[in-house]
Design a protein around this nucleic acid. Structure first.
Lengths: 254, 254
DNA sequence: TCGTGTAGGTTGTATATACAGGCTAGACCA
DNA sequence: TGGTCTAGCCTGTATATACAACCTACACGA
């Protein structure tokens, strides 16, 4: 254990703690370099390095002349881009619409309980939505949300705000894990997505964490003939994604 | 155009240029901070920032007391990890084997010519391999390689070294773009992969750049019932995460 | 009232300096 | 010969200082 960590790292941890605890929310102003010089008794260059690295890592955004501000997760995170299909569709200049098929309280069982790290029978909300791009169905969102995480989930109108937008408003999502599979769709899925008989579906299975615990588990079904996931790599290591004209999401990274 | 870029950025560009031009190869020693102070007439802190950021970005690795060295692309790039299925299989402790179905010179047409940004009829090598994990077929690699990029491609024994390992030995691959799709396999693919009649395939379509030009285009077909792509995201913004690799489905079968 | 100008805070960069700690080759000694 | 020690290079961090550019609120004047 590094008992003696560098002072710039202490500063970074100090800021990160304020962000992840909720004391500092997106768009909030972060102490300026000079304020850190005062309060933390460090030189300005040390404060500068801490804030600059937090900027590089995406925690904050800095504007010369104005200050340093907590990043707006909804606005800039690629994680969110992956999650919110409404934004993806809007980015392509198309119209998003969605239909809520189910919005109910259930007791978690089997795979869902396992994925969310909860006991069998724990309360979860079950959401089933069909998302459409220009009226053409493009995704079936089959989602389970830990009830204790978002108690007022049943009161939301998810035809107006997507579940992922709602969930990120409840608390910042801090980690996500996903798997992509190819499957033949069930009859129900095929029906929702208006798919042909000889068509495969692309399924994204995703789990999202907040504050160290998984809070939602979802299966996103897409018609294989109309949907693809795209990714773009630039070495070394880091992946960036760009929007394309086709229906797209992005996956992977390093 | 930013005529005046910061001096630390000039230093970074200077080093990156030496790396991508091949003048500095993986594991080669990079000029030390003090050497840059001398040769570039900057302060040590400026040289330090340049080298430290190159380290953060993965271009180089620094060892206190020894120096700064060019990263070994093959050893650490996730781009490579994603590409070389043999390594992925080995990482899971399993045995990789592959069978070369086709290894021939062709004239590029249609989609291939378009993907590689070349004229119709330009020489390309066509490779078709079946990769197996513990003797179970897992991937059909259908790859086109720009002939001028790797002239001795037909002489290679790809049952011993995978095409991607060979290609990265010819020149570092600097960029990759991929799309993931779900499809019903053709009869040939289904046969190669030993798939059932009611099974979808997961297809990764990838294009890789070297020195600013696309040099290979490939379609990687996987059996949908046995394989998935996984990814792991950690916010904020920078999806700097675990490798995106092909993983075998185990307990997730239903 | 409305526009202009500016003072002062903020980030961005660059330098000089200092000390700590890691690593290695070569000097030195037994 | 073989082991030890150290000088000298390297990175890692921290500070003090300086100047530029940017942005905003507010005072000022037409």
């Amino acid at each position: 254990m590094s008992v003696n960590k560098p002072r710039y790292q202490e500063l970074k941890d100090f800021i990160i703690e304020k962000i992840s605890s909720g004391e500092l929310k997106p768009t909030d102003r972060v102490p300026s370099e000079n304020e850190l010089v005062e309060s933390k008794n460090v030189s300005r260059m040390t404060a500068n390095r801490a804030l600059r690295e937090l900027d590089d890592e995406g925690y904050v955004e800095r504007v010369a002349g104005r200050g340093t501000f907590v990043s707006d997760f909804l606005a800039r995170s690629d994680l969110l881009e992956v999650q919110n299909i409404a934004d993806e569709i809007a980015q392509r200049g198309n119209t998003h619409s969605s239909r809520v098929v189910r919005q109910s309280l259930q007791h978690a069982r089997g795979e869902v309980a396992e994925a969310l790290h909860i006991e069998q029978g724990t309360d979860v909300f079950h959401l089933l939505l069909v998302h459409a791009e220009n009226a053409l169905p493009i995704q079936v969102e089959d989602r389970y949300v830990l009830a204790s995480f978002a108690p007022d989930c049943l009161l939301q109108d998810f035809s107006r705000m997507t579940p992922s937008a709602y969930l990120t408003s409840v608390a910042p999502l801090q980690e996500a894990e996903q798997a992509v599979r190819a499957k033949l769709p069930s009859l129900a899925i095929r029906d929702y997505l208006d798919m042909g008989a000889e068509e495969a579906s692309l399924v994204v299975i995703r789990r999202t964490w907040s504050k160290g615990h998984p809070v939602t588990f979802s299966r996103l079904h897409h018609p294989g003939s109309r949907y693809e996931l795209t990714g773009h790599y630039t070495p070394p290591g880091t992946l960036r994604t760009a929007s394309a004209d086709v229906v797209q999401l992005e996956n992977l990274r390093r």
